[in-house]
Design a protein around this nucleic acid. Structure first.
Lengths: 255, 255
DNA sequence: ACATGAATATTGGAT
DNA sequence: ATCCAATTTTCATGT
């Protein structure tokens, strides 16, 4: 077990700088600093967070995130930076993470540091995700009758000049069928997308074209918009039944 | 200073459960567990992460995130859960975070725990973000000549049955003007949105209608699509010049 | 490098 | 509660 590399409690500025210099961008080492700090961001937008307590997490890929006491999203962050610098300014430790393309920067001033730690995270072995739109697409391509009986699949991700059609086929009535997939509840935006594809395919082919929006559910306004455009909704689930995906957590059963 | 509440290093299962029971959902206390663990998610999708080293962060709002050694995004997460449970199963500590609406669950099995800590994060004082689309909208409403000389603003966020028009006005030529704003580079999707609004306003008003896409930049394909639809691009910046937003970090100047 | 589109998107605001 | 739209979206993928 070699997860906790090193930890310093209430380091003074020099100790914190030394600590960061030693561990930043080291292999699989995630560095965290828990401190009262100020954070400034400038790049795609600009933001200032006044003094407050945050958990600053620095990963070896140069990504940085500053977490407050609530929410999944960090208060400030920066994906994969090109450079991380540490220095002392006016007696306080300052950390700057910079990135080109887009040009942006996060600057953290540590006012009072409670804790700094270096964690060595050994490689995770595997990760599997089920229920993505891509998976839904593959499964519907194998079983197009779930969309409509007798549907023949002609293409997946068929590119047009107004975007890619998720699933393109022909119905038993001879008309072309454009299917737009959504893995979650379909909104008006999905309806507009579908309407655009159908209109374009009608223009290009001159044939009879029907449009199907396939999703697990649809919002009420979206359903109304569908009807106005003479399109239809088809209920399809992104995930199979919970039981078949993997065993339910037996924890706390019968307690 | 009362940031680091409590910490246990390499706790055994009983100690870890006791620790979590004590600190979870406590006021402003963020709990972190650094451990080799397995993570399973089931809800909107489903996922399994095999044994690996992760940092598990639990905030008092019930949000949970499991971080690997790279990326801003957690490997697994859950926003604002309704219940967090801890128990022992087969001698291993298991943590389950559940949420209704949507019904979903993350389950973490701690195989070997390096560290558990409780951090008390005192309230941050302030946070200001500059350069949002909302701000851009306000600033253009005050200075519509940045879009086109003599433009009169009639409405902001004008709702139509195909979506809300960011900025709606009338030009000196007497025609109506529909403006779509993007705080970042405009894509084809923005062009389609604008084209939809323009078409609808033409239908509803019967007047001459022009469409303007206002953004800091535009992708090449989007610019081509704009031309096809007889719409125009207008360069507007979301942020004022860097210098005026706030002082550049003087750190490392001339070194 | 640029462009596109999905995501367990998350989050905040309006209805 | 539902729906919609912005986001420093992030991220993977294809060109």
């Amino acid at each position: 077990m070699c997860v906790l590399r090193e930890q310093v409690i209430e380091p003074d500025p020099d100790a914190l700088v030394a600590f960061l210099d030693e561990h930043l961008r080291d292999g699989r080492v995630v560095v965290q600093v828990v401190a009262e700090c100020e954070v400034v961001y400038h790049g795609r937008a600009a933001s200032v967070a006044d003094a407050g307590d945050y958990v600053v997490m620095l990963k070896p890929d140069g990504s940085l995130q500053v977490h407050g006491y609530k929410g999944v999203k960090p208060v400030n962050w920066q994906p994969q930076t090109d450079d991380v610098w540490v220095g002392i300014e006016d007696g306080q430790v300052v950390l700057v993470a910079e990135r080109r393309s887009p040009e942006e920067m996060v600057r953290v001033v540590f006012l009072e540091t409670a804790l700094a730690q270096a964690l060595h995270l050994r490689e995770g072995s595997g990760f599997v995700l089920m229920g993505s739109e891509a998976e839904m697409q593959r499964s519907l391509a194998r079983a197009p009758e779930l969309i409509e009986p007798g549907l023949t699949v002609l293409d997946l991700e068929l590119p047009t000049d107004v975007g890619g059609i998720d699933l393109f086929g022909r119905g038993t009535d001879g008309s072309l069928v454009v299917v737009e997939l959504k893995r979650a509840k379909a909104t008006q935006e999905a309806v507009h997308q579908l309407a655009r594809y159908v209109a374009r395919v009608r223009e290009l082919s001159g044939e009879r074209v029907r449009g199907v929006l396939a999703a697990p559910t649809i919002s009420k306004p979206a359903l109304a918009a569908l009807a106005r455009h003479d399109l239809v909704f088809c209920e399809v689930t992104a995930l199979p039944e919970p039981e078949t995906t993997f065993a339910q957590p037996g924890l706390f059963d019968g307690t």
